[in-house]
Amino acid sequence: MKKDLLAIADLTREEIYLILDTAEAMREIGLRPIKKVPTLRGKTIVNLFFEPSTRTRTSFEIAEKRLSADTLNIAVATSSVLKGETLVDTAMNIEAMAPDMIVLRHASSGACHLLARICKSRIINAGDGMHEHPTQALLDAFTIREHKKRIEGLKVAIVGDLLHSRVLRSNVQLLTRLGADVCLSGPPTMVPAGIERCGVRVLTSVDEAVVGADVIMMLRIQQERMQGAFFPSLREYFTVFGMTAERVRRAKPDVIIMHPGPMNRGVEIASDVADGPYSVILEQVANGVAVRMAVLYLLAGAPEMD
């Protein structure tokens, strides 16, 4: 594996499968009465979060603790960033204390590349701006594979705010790499220019996009996007793009519905779909811990497992 995990492009196809296979073993640890192995004992991992996050930060922290790493969390509100320190200075100060890994969440695309250039510590991207969120895509792939036993050849529809979504960008990279047939749907105001060149189709009609889908992946709509004139109202968004039970019926009978969270019920997804039998949304969260354990373990140089 490369030193850092900044984007899905950093991983070969074999490494992706290695992470998914390793995550299977990691999940088993979470089922034990004592959910802890000494694998990363003595390793220091800094969770450096410049954006609020509940799910991802908690998931990384649980993963780190189950592997016995020494972890500490730095959140923006308690850091010296408020005193006007640059990201580079913050990073160099943390680096001076010689952590083994830094898990970074930042509002600017490419922030983790900046850190990777100046830090000896391994950098794991936990979401950078609109760019990527690679561990989310890995846990999504893990969840899909668990249900469908494969990824190649599956029809995956991804629906929502394509423009601002880092989850979308990582999933497009990963799913196309593994041979899925990926179809995107969202308002034309929120489609990244030239995204078709990644080997995906873009359909404006969500009704067409979900036809025959094995997987429907919903993306979060940020409520303030109306101000940018991306769409007129949440009500209208739900009418045109919201995932309703009626739309789900156009997909395969065994379709699974995914959402990276946090969900806006009644905006991008109807509650009966989110809570319905096809929903694997909470499984995604559970799998996130196992997948992140696998990533941490493999990046640390795959020391002997206990």
């Binding site: 695309s109 490419g110 950078d128 760019h131 990527e132 960008r169 990244p192 220019a193 995204i195």
Partner: peptide, 10 residues
């Protein structure tokens, strides 16, 4: 606005 900015999230 183009492929590079789109994939880099800029």
């Amino acid at each position: 606005e183009g492929f590079s900015a789109s994939t880099l999230g800029l």
